[in-house]
Design a protein around this nucleic acid. Sequence first.
DNA 1: ATGTCTTTGTGAACGCGTGCACAAAGATGG
DNA 2: CCATCTTTGTGCACGCGTTCACAAAGACAT
Lengths: 257, 257
Amino acid sequence: MATGRTHRPATRSRGIPEATVARLPLYLRALTALSERSVPTVSSEELAAAAGVNSAKLRKDFSYLGSYGTRGVGYDVEYLVYQISRELGLTQDWPVVIVGIGNLGAALANYGGFASRGFRVAALIDADPAMAGKPVAGIPVQHSDELEKIIEDNGVSIGVIATPAGAAQPVCDRLVAAGVTSILNFAPTVLTVPDGVDVRKVDLSIELQILAFHEQRKAGEEAAASDGAGPVPAGRDSAAASADKGPDGDVPAVMPA
Amino acid sequence: MATGRTHRPATRSRGIPEATVARLPLYLRALTALSERSVPTVSSEELAAAAGVNSAKLRKDFSYLGSYGTRGVGYDVEYLVYQISRELGLTQDWPVVIVGIGNLGAALANYGGFASRGFRVAALIDADPAMAGKPVAGIPVQHSDELEKIIEDNGVSIGVIATPAGAAQPVCDRLVAAGVTSILNFAPTVLTVPDGVDVRKVDLSIELQILAFHEQRKAGEEAAASDGAGPVPAGRDSAAASADKGPDGDVPAVMPA
DNA sequence: ATGTCTTTGTGAACGCGTGCACAAAGATGG
DNA sequence: CCATCTTTGTGCACGCGTTCACAAAGACAT
């Protein structure tokens, strides 16, 4: 799962639970696929299976949006696609800027899932002067100096940070100062932002570590018979496990497509 | 953050809650940074701030691992780094294969956060014959035909799928059949896997949609702004910058990644 | 030793999210 | 119009996760 966090306990999203909001895109994707196959209606059971969730959960989620289903029949696919899109705010155009055009930034720029969801890459920004003007995904990269102007001129409110960890906070500060109020962060760093600004973070390394945890557990259970505890190099100071070479601080995170 | 899901009903993770496991990598990152600065000990308050979480939560998380702190002093950084690494299974080597070497796959292959965490890219696999032999991140790409052999020869148990949506499930099936038991999926599709196999999913599109939802809500609240107080915000996207946060800022939550 | 001060570790309360199970609503057929 | 069948919408209970608040534990000074 992804990983998104930033302090804030109360989750009163205008009646719609945060957990539900996080699943709406999932339903939308499944519904879009059905729509493309010209399926007119779908039951909660079928849609739930397609989205990979429990049907009861799906019905409860939809109940927060209103009563859009017909008992005995199911949900009208097209209508639901529209309702969810509207709820998520995808019926409007969202200009987005991507800062940090390295391998990851380029991958994001080429990602096709944007346009189809109402997102438009308004600009690609990088601090390296050598990148300026060079086209990536058909869009010329612009230098960081232009950041504020680009954001204001295009009315950008969503920014994507794909820079090395060290550059993330400064870039974030500039984005926020220029008017961005939502940030998707791929750099492995905790960003500090003022109230009113949303930050979601994606860190591949974290996802892999969680997988490793479960993987280790599976291996452990398998050898449940005689297993003791792993090698326990006593000494509190023995410290630093195996591979700890590079400072992770400067490597950009990675991500989705 | 990322998004991950598909799995276990009972969370019998040897006593450690899933939510805690998802945060351990976060603590580990903060601790590694402190370690590099040669900081000997850290209090729950300081570490929590560095990791972006609540200090009470951090202490409770650590309590699941054991009593590694010293009252009145804090936690020994090096010792904690080791304990968390061991708990996550990062003290061992995890060979990983990346399937689908497009923009994203290449970005992942170049990601530096792997090696420093015990992960080793054992192979890059792509279905395009033209890619075969071509080096990416210093590793020659191999053709899909070799998939099973590669996995068995290297004892790979973790696979990363970065293929187009249509190829994901078939690739997943082959990975699982060959012995992979943990999968990180970047393709926008719900993968079906047998019991015992973990799947975590990362989908940028979903993260952006969640941001859009909150962004839309902010814009809506602004329109109903009744608390004057100060400068009158002319255009909605022009100035901004200032702390124009009215009622309640809404920040992401989620979990679990 | 004794007292004071700091910080951990955790018992308990609370709230959110999940899933069950069923009544209500509507379609459909006779 | 009535009976039956399907599927939604939701009340309710339960469990996980979060947070508070404080006693216990140890460091440190006197």
